[in-house]
């Protein structure tokens, strides 16, 4: 199913709602909007999501931004449901952001089609 780009971004960007769950606790989950970002190695969740479902820290990870700045962030293990597909548990980085970022660790589970002409996109599980 083709989804619309989010026109709140300039230029519009592919954003969809995902479900984040605590590992081994299927009833503890929350929803968050996530931006599709094939440039990111790893998926990022907002702190508010970690707080909403009481995620516990399981380590940390260094990230390098566009400016080469290296920062250390909390790392948590979660379950993600993206485009109606529940993925195996995965480690994610937690940052003070409003939107989640879907990196290639998640996107590589799917066929991703970006139709910039129509401002629509599709994430499909082959």
């Amino acid at each position: 199913m083709m989804l619309p780009y989010d026109s709140a971004f300039n230029p519009p960007a592919p954003v969809l709602e995902i479900v984040v769950g605590r590992p081994q606790a299927t009833h503890i989950e929350t929803h968050v909007r996530a931006q599709v970002d094939p440039g990111s190695d790893i998926t990022v969740l907002p702190e508010s999501v970690a707080e909403a479902i009481g995620l516990q820290r399981a380590g940390d990870l260094e990230t390098e931004g566009y400016d080469g700045v290296v920062t250390c962030w909390p790392l948590c293990v979660v379950t993600l449901t993206v485009a109606d597909v529940t993925l195996p548990p995965i480690s994610v980085v937690v940052m003070p952001r409003s939107l989640a970022i879907l990196g290639r660790d998640v996107l590589n589970h799917f066929i991703l089609a970006l139709n910039g002409k129509d401002l629509t996109f599709e994430l499909r599980d082959p």
Partner: peptide, 13 residues
């Protein structure tokens, strides 16, 4: 420590 790249992420501080 392992390091990952997040080139397009904006952080709200």
């Amino acid at each position: 420590l392992p390091r990952v790249r997040l080139p397009s992420v904006w952080i709200a501080r």
